[in-house]
């Protein structure tokens, strides 16, 4: 087996140690599961290592890894349907009363995790990574219109389910541009 130059391996190791925490948080917010996020990050880092000679600097490597996290998470969800977990007790399917809605942090996070993967990835990229709509579209590999629709639908579902008034102010750069 031909091992890559030690210089490349050293650069990759430095990149990993510097950026893996941030990338893991993104992976965790997208999949909503600690173990799954760990697997997702490792898979994405392996793909990044394979593509490492094509990535010229650390910023492009981080963007590549983030994109790999998003696309891999979406493909995993589509293929494995891992959001469907076996349970002994059926969940209560009653529609929550908006007046009695629990708007705690935990419930909001739980509601966020019930969103479809694309909606969730779009929300995470827009509101956690602070990417613009164009950048989000680039990472997700779709059009800007699709990103707008995914974010709008996802936030609408969160409002409906939790009854909370979500503050979804646009990003600063878009406020300036619009």
């Amino acid at each position: 087996m031909v091992v890559r130059k030690s210089r490349e391996a050293t650069d990759f190791t430095e990149f990993m140690s510097a950026r893996s925490a941030t990338l893991f948080r993104t992976a965790y917010l997208i999949v909503g599961d600690h173990q799954l996020a760990q697997d997702l990050l490792q898979e994405s880092l392996i793909k990044t290592y394979v593509a490492w000679p094509r990535l010229r600097d650390v910023s492009s490597a981080e963007a590549y890894t983030r994109k790999t996290i998003v696309t891999t998470a979406i493909s995993w969800r589509r293929r494995r349907s891992f959001h469907e977990r076996p349970t002994d007790v059926l969940p209560d399917t009653a529609v929550p009363d908006p007046g009695e809605a629990v708007t705690t942090h935990a419930s909001m996070v739980a509601q966020l995790r019930t969103l479809p993967p694309r909606q969730r990835a779009a929300i995470v990229l827009r509101y956690y990574e602070d990417l613009s709509e164009a950048q989000t579209a680039e990472v997700m590999g779709c059009s800007v219109g699709t990103v707008k629709a995914q974010v709008s639908t996802g936030l609408g579902r969160l409002r409906d389910r939790s009854g909370a008034n979500l503050d979804t102010a646009p990003l600063d750069d878009e406020a300036v541009n619009s």
Binding site: T103, H105, L166, T168
Partner: peptide, 11 residues
């Protein structure tokens, strides 16, 4: 609730 704060706190 700010969706940004929510995500950052969770992360």
């Amino acid at each position: 609730n700010s969706i940004r704060d929510l995500l950052r706190q969770d992360a």
